[in-house]
């Protein structure tokens, strides 16, 4: 079992013929992802490495029944690509692109949320991987291992670190979901926790947050309110970040009283989550929550 993505997922790539899109499509296919189509306006009717290319997402969906889209188009055009995907009834749109103007993201997100069973992951996110089944995005291929841990993170590289550390300790993952580092985005921590709650294979959850916004606090409130019964291990980066400075991610900024690492740690602690100070701690705490924890390699 898994959330959002599995071996049956039929993936199309918007911007597949570009440099980034092309490279990561090859990586995804090497992982085993079922990439059924690419979309590049003006290149419809051609093929790239045996994958058919279409002019529009609607054409691609009609021909291939794609249900997941990965967006690799440049920032000025990415919000349009999100809306195109959503309005073609793609169930899960994963936007990897970084640097989309925030007003564009707000509009595109509102279109995705306008109804139906549509979801947006990102933008400015690494994508997601269900180990051994499928990967959409840019998460390195060699780090994941199938198992019982659900992973959800804002930061890409920090998520890779945690996934690798978990895998090396024999703690595999159901699905690892990177929600992205922008101030406005699609799926939130809370949304992904809701999905993990319904997934019987997910026994415990690792949440990797960072300064800025209140998505971690929202998740903490949700955990407390619903009595989410799977243990949560949380790791928050940016404890040393000064207020008012943007730490790399557009959304990683402490504004006034909101967004500090301590505020998030306090909220999650109050909700009963275990707080990890280091990646080694993440592994130790997660392993403690699994009854039949395999021996650490």
């Amino acid at each position: 079992m898994s959330v959002l993505l599995n071996a049956a997922s039929r993936v199309l790539v918007q911007g597949m013929t570009g440099r980034e899109g092309g490279f990561h499509t090859a990586q995804m296919r090497a992982y085993g992802t079922n990439v059924v189509a690419g979309v590049s306006p003006g290149k419809g009717g051609t093929e790239r490495d045996g994958v058919p290319v279409f002019d529009t997402v609607t054409d691609a969906v009609a021909a291939t029944d794609a249900d997941v889209s990965a967006i690799f188009v440049p920032a000025p055009f990415a919000a349009d690509a999100i809306m195109e995907s959503a309005l073609a009834d793609i169930a899960l749109t994963v936007c990897i692109t970084e640097g989309i103007p925030i007003h564009d993201t707000i509009r595109a997100r509102s279109v995705v949320m306008r109804g139906g069973n549509r979801r947006l992951l990102g933008p400015n996110c690494p994508g997601l991987v269900t180990p051994g089944q499928s990967k959409v995005g840019i998460i390195p291929n060699h780090i994941s291992l199938p198992g019982p841990v659900g992973v959800v993170a804002r930061s890409g590289t920090l998520m890779y670190e945690v996934i690798q550390a978990l895998s090396q300790a024999g703690l595999g993952q159901t699905t690892s979901v990177g929600i992205g580092g922008d101030p406005v985005s699609g799926l939130s921590f809370k949304d992904v926790l809701e999905l993990f709650a319904k997934d019987p294979a997910t026994q415990t959850v690792v949440m990797i947050g960072e300064i800025g916004g209140a998505s971690e606090e929202e998740a903490a409130a949700w955990i407390a309110k619903t009595g989410f019964d799977k243990p949560v291990v949380a790791f928050i980066s940016g404890r040393t970040a000064p207020p008012g400075k943007r730490m790399g991610h557009a959304g990683a900024i402490i504004s006034g009283n909101t967004g500090s690492a301590q505020g998030k740690i306090d909220a999650l602690t109050a909700a009963g989550a275990g707080i990890a100070d280091t990646i080694e701690d993440v592994v130790r705490l997660t392993s403690g929550h699994l009854p039949a924890a395999p021996s650490v390699r």
Partner: peptide, 26 residues
């Protein structure tokens, strides 16, 4: 981002660099 300490920190990825700073402080 300029801070006021003495350990220069370089990494790849915003979250990882934030964590690098946290580790130095820890």
């Amino acid at each position: 981002v300029h801070l006021d300490g003495y350990v220069g920190c370089i990494g790849n990825g915003a979250g990882l660099v934030m964590n690098t700073l946290d580790l130095v402080k820890q």
